[in-house]
Simulated assay, not measured.
Amino acid sequence: MRVVIAVVAAALLAGCASSTMDEARSKTPGKTFSSAKSADVVAQCIQFSWQDEAVFGVDASGYLEPGKPGSFTVYTRGAESFADIQSQGAASRVNYYAVKPDAVAQRRMAALATCL
């Protein structure tokens, strides 16, 4: 029963996050980065860094979702911040979005930058 509740909650969370992300994607990203690393390596690093409770406390969350082949999205609870990572040959490009450009969003961007 707990598994069913968890799956339903995740599906509802993904639906809310998706509309927030679609709205943000219709605008210019807050910041764009390039990396010589592959998209999957960068995405996993961002996810791990955003889950660091020592940095983000109770706001520590990072969910990784594969997209089209060679692309990934890492997002926080409620998609307050998210990063689209796309392959560009052996390298990758990261578009970072934040709903509110506050101090937490700046820390998430700084954590993302350590993964490049």
Rank of each mutant, 00 (worst) to 15 (best):
R2S: 15
I5S: 15
A6M: 14
V8E: 15
L12Y: 08
L12P: 04
L12C: 11
L13Y: 08
A14S: 13
A14I: 06
A14D: 08
G15R: 05
G15Q: 12
C16I: 08
A17C: 14
A17T: 06
A17E: 14
S18G: 10
S18Q: 14
S19K: 14
S19T: 15
S19N: 12
T20H: 07
M21D: 09
D22M: 13
D22E: 11
R25N: 11
R25S: 09
R25M: 15
S26V: 06
S26R: 13
K27T: 09
T28H: 08
P29Y: 12
G30V: 04
G30D: 13
G30M: 09
G30A: 10
K31I: 03
S34E: 10
S34A: 11
S34Y: 11
S35M: 07
S35W: 07
S35V: 03
A36M: 12
A36Y: 08
K37M: 13
K37S: 15
K37R: 15
K37P: 00
S38V: 05
S38I: 02
S38E: 14
A39Y: 02
A39R: 01
D40M: 07
V41N: 04
V41W: 00
V41I: 14
V42L: 09
A43I: 08
Q44G: 06
Q44I: 03
I46H: 09
I46T: 07
S49D: 03
S49F: 10
W50C: 01
W50R: 09
Q51T: 11
D52G: 04
D52S: 11
D52Q: 12
E53P: 04
E53S: 13
A54W: 05
A54K: 12
A54M: 06
A54P: 00
V55C: 04
F56M: 08
F56K: 05
G57R: 06
G57E: 08
G57F: 05
V58Y: 06
V58F: 07
V58S: 11
V58I: 12
D59P: 02
D59Y: 14
A60R: 03
A60D: 06
A60L: 09
A60P: 11
S61G: 09
G62R: 04
Y63V: 03
Y63K: 07
L64P: 01
E65I: 04
P66V: 01
G67A: 13
G67E: 11
S71L: 02
S71R: 01
S71F: 00
F72K: 09
T73S: 12
T73V: 15
V74H: 00
T76Y: 07
T76D: 09
T76W: 01
R77V: 07
E80G: 12
E80Y: 06
S81G: 05
S81E: 11
S81F: 00
F82N: 08
F82L: 06
F82A: 05
A83D: 10
A83G: 03
D84E: 15
I85K: 00
Q86T: 12
Q88L: 08
G89A: 11
A90M: 03
A90R: 00
S92F: 00
R93A: 09
R93D: 02
V94G: 03
N95H: 12
Y96I: 06
Y97Q: 07
A98C: 03
V99E: 01
V99I: 11
K100T: 10
P101R: 12
A103G: 05
A103P: 00
A105E: 00
R107M: 10
R107C: 01
M109S: 15
A110P: 03
A111I: 00
A111H: 02
L112S: 09
L112A: 05
A113T: 10
A113K: 15
C115Q: 11
C115A: 10
